[in-house]
Nucleic acid binder design. Structure first.
Lengths: 126, 126
DNA sequence: TTATCTGTATTAATCATATAATACAGCGTA
DNA sequence: TACGCTGTATTATATGATTAATACAGATAA
């Protein structure tokens, strides 16, 4: 577990975002155990309360659940996971559209740029 | 001049963003005068120092210039304006790619979503 | 010359965030 | 039973970014 934090956003938000991405990319199994608050805090060199806040957000969003005083687990609700994926994608698309709205770029040109960047990135991953 | 501010981002950043969009969409002519710090502050109901900070950012980015103690003006450097447009677009595309990276969405599906949203938005503008 | 605009600079106050220090309760196990 | 893990909650403090208050200097016009 490692996150490169930026200074702009709150740490707990970035932790949540990281977990969302991990979950959405299928790196966790349904019901898989995640690190305890204190252990996560140790790993990421953050305050346990910050870890707690991140987990609380995720719990309220239904992404994780906690039974008794055992470490929290990834939700087993597949619908929640599908929704997460959809929200990540649609949110990203919405932001793109909003950002280019004032620029008046033709749709074809925009798509060309996206394809180029997409391929470029896929290449880097290999 | 009117901006609907969100609570998330600093006001001066949002002011800069607004001007960038206005400039990129061609709503200003080269060398056109913009409101004074104090007048902008009045219009937007913000503190004059916040307006000053926004203008300072824009001046450092080369988007506006100030001569003596006259109101600032939009740059006359067309290259700066072309760069601005390019940066807005490429920044938006980069953020999109980064956001969907963990989701493993096929490029065709992504493009389909973008086209749909784009058309939808163009429809609303009319 | 006085008033009123400019832009600019300095300092103070505010606010959200992050950190920190503690405490409490439940559970498993040595 | 006692220890060491869990999660959770409360309160206080520190910090940094943002915003606000105030002052100053130059220019223009009544």
């Amino acid at each position: 577990m490692k996150i490169t934090f930026n200074k702009r956003d709150p740490v707990y938000i970035q932790v949540v975002q990281h977990f969302k991405e991990q979950i959405a990319s299928g790196k966790y199994e349904l019901g898989q155990e995640i690190p305890s608050r204190r252990e996560l805090a140790n790993q990421l060199k953050i305050n346990p309360n910050t870890a707690q806040r991140a987990y609380k957000e995720m719990e309220e969003a239904g992404l994780i659940f906690t039974e008794g005083n055992n470490p929290s687990r990834i939700t087993k609700d597949e619908q929640v996971l599908r929704n997460l994926r959809t929200e990540l994608i649609e949110g990203a698309v919405d932001r793109l559209i909003a950002a280019v709205e004032p620029v008046n770029i033709p749709i074809d040109e925009l798509i060309g740029l996206i394809q180029a960047k997409y391929e470029e990135q896929r290449g880097e991953q290999r």
